[in-house]
Computed example of a mutant assay.
Amino acid sequence: MSTDREHAIARKGRHIGLVIAVTMVAWLALTLFIGPALELPGRFALLFDFAALAGLIYAVINIFQLWRMRQDSQR
């Protein structure tokens, strides 16, 4: 496996981890602390849930791409 490919795989893995971590922290902060502090209606909680779901779907797609990159590099 080439060094450039190893670096690309590692960079993509860090990116995925960062996306998941930021998504979950933002979701928890918005639904548990910021939303109630601003007295937002309950429908905003659903909006925050959908935004978090979109972020996690993006992460799953990238995990699949990472898996494919690793499969191709082993051949």
Rank of each mutant, 00 (worst) to 15 (best):
W27C: 06
A51L: 09
Q65F: 06
Q71F: 09
L40M: 07
W67C: 03
W67P: 00
V60F: 11
G13T: 11
I57W: 13
A54G: 13
R68N: 08
R14T: 13
I61Y: 15
L56N: 08
A45P: 01
F44I: 03
A10I: 09
M24T: 09
L30E: 00
V60I: 15
S2R: 11
L32T: 03
L28Q: 07
R75L: 07
I63Y: 06
L28W: 10
G42N: 05
T23D: 14
W27M: 02
I34E: 01
A59E: 07
L66Y: 06
A45G: 13
L18H: 14
I63K: 06
S2T: 10
L40D: 01
M69Y: 05
W67L: 12
D4K: 14
I16M: 06
G13H: 13
V19P: 00
P41V: 02
A26P: 00
A59I: 01
L66D: 05
L46G: 08
T3D: 15
R70Y: 03
T3Y: 09
L66K: 03
F44L: 05
M69I: 01
M69W: 07
A29C: 11
G17A: 12
F48N: 03
G17I: 08
H15D: 11
A52V: 02
L66N: 13
V19K: 12
L56S: 08
Q65A: 13
M1Y: 15
I61F: 12
L38A: 10
Q74I: 09
A54K: 04
L30T: 01
F48P: 04
E39Q: 13
A21F: 10
V60Y: 09
I57E: 05
L40N: 03
G55T: 04
H7C: 08
Q74C: 03
L28Y: 05
F33R: 02
L32F: 11
L53F: 12
F44R: 00
Y58D: 10
E6G: 08
V19H: 08
T23S: 09
R70C: 06
V60G: 12
F64S: 12
I34Q: 06
T23N: 13
F44Q: 02
V19Y: 03
I9R: 09
Q71G: 06
W67Q: 12
G13M: 11
D49Q: 08
G42T: 07
D72G: 01
A10K: 14
R11K: 15
R75I: 07
L32W: 06
W67E: 02
R11I: 04
S2Q: 09
L30F: 10
I16H: 05
Y58H: 10
A54R: 02
V19W: 03
P36N: 03
V25L: 14
T3H: 15
G17Y: 05
I20T: 10
F33M: 05
N62L: 14
V19Q: 12
A21M: 11
F64D: 07
S73N: 13
L66T: 01
F64E: 13
H7Q: 15
F48A: 07
H7V: 11
L47M: 05
I9G: 07
I16S: 04
F33T: 04
L38G: 01
V25G: 03
D4L: 12
R11P: 01
F50I: 07
A59D: 04
I16W: 03
L38T: 00
P41Q: 04
F48W: 10
R68S: 03
M69V: 04
A37L: 10
L47P: 00
